[in-house]
Amino acid sequence: MRTLKTTLIIVLALLAVPCISQEDSKSQAFWVHEDVVKPSMISEYETVCKELTDAMKTHNIQEMNSIVANLSDNRYLWVGPIENMAQLDKPLFATLAEKMGADKMGGLFDRMDKCYDIEQNYIIHLDKELSYMPGGITQTPEGQDYRKFHYFHYTPGNRAIVKKKVEDIKNLFTNKGSKLDYRVYRSGFGTRGEFYMVAIAAKDAADYANKISANNELMGEEWLKTYTDFTSTLEKYEAFEGNMRPDMAYAPGE
């Protein structure tokens, strides 16, 4: 098997770890695998992924639990929590290979390999203290599959001041009683440069726009000043639209 097969196997197995399992922990590490799918191969890629999901359902694979997101720039993200790097050394997907046949499973990954030329892997950390979700942190709010991912890049020399500005933003949200939830992730091993990624969930793009508008009105001029102070410390800002893909996800018993 080529790199993708090995990596995807690792990522899917890592997703078996209960998401955000350590409630008393300040952060949770996540392994991220990205496939940058060729525009002409999106349909085939998704077909293969769904066939893989169906195979796991058919054989009732217990050790797998996967979620998938795709971004507007044709990136597909496989994301799973890890407790330590030692998890990456465990033999994986053995049960599925045994039940469906190694050749058949390998054939799925062979087809998937043809759908992209670029893949990358890295670790990010969900920062629970900097995130704002008063009702409890979850990566998959029910009925809200739309995502807006905001990437705030900064230089190592500005690390401390940027963190302070992120704390100021959460404090403002808390004091104003904002209804706009967000999760904050820090860059980790394997990422290019340092950044905070802020993920915001909504029903769709229109719902997201309405949430932002309502929040801006609630926060007033104090928000504009706080956000401007924050962005003045940054090196670069990027934003990407995306969607969670429950049709490509898998959880035992579902």
Rank of each mutant, 00 (worst) to 15 (best):
V162L: 09
S178V: 13
V198G: 01
T138Q: 09
D54N: 10
W223N: 05
I67N: 02
K104I: 14
L8F: 13
L130S: 03
Q120L: 12
D113E: 15
L88H: 04
A86T: 12
Q87P: 04
Q139E: 03
V166S: 08
V68T: 08
L130H: 04
K179Q: 14
E222L: 10
V68Y: 11
L218E: 09
E129V: 09
P39L: 07
E167M: 14
I67M: 00
V11I: 08
P39C: 06
M85G: 03
K148Q: 13
T53E: 10
E254Q: 04
I67D: 02
Y196K: 05
T58A: 06
H59M: 05
E217C: 01
M1N: 10
K225S: 10
E51C: 05
A214I: 01
T174H: 12
P156Q: 09
E119F: 00
Y132G: 08
G143F: 07
A94L: 14
M197S: 04
G101Q: 06
H125I: 02
E129M: 04
D204E: 04
A13F: 02
L108N: 13
A69Q: 08
G136P: 03
Q62I: 05
N70R: 12
S187V: 01
E44M: 10
T6E: 12
T228V: 03
F230L: 15
N74T: 10
G157I: 05
L130T: 00
D35I: 04
G136S: 07
L172G: 11
E46Q: 13
I82V: 15
F240P: 00
A160Q: 07
P39M: 06
N210T: 06
G136C: 07
H153Y: 15
P246N: 12
N171E: 14
G157F: 08
P134Q: 09
M64G: 00
T47F: 04
C49K: 11
Y76A: 09
A13M: 05
P39Q: 06
E119S: 06
L92W: 04
M105V: 15
R183M: 15
E167N: 06
R192F: 03
T233N: 14
A55C: 13
N60M: 08
F152N: 09
L108G: 01
Y182H: 11
I137Y: 02
L180M: 15
K236D: 14
Q139F: 13
F195R: 08
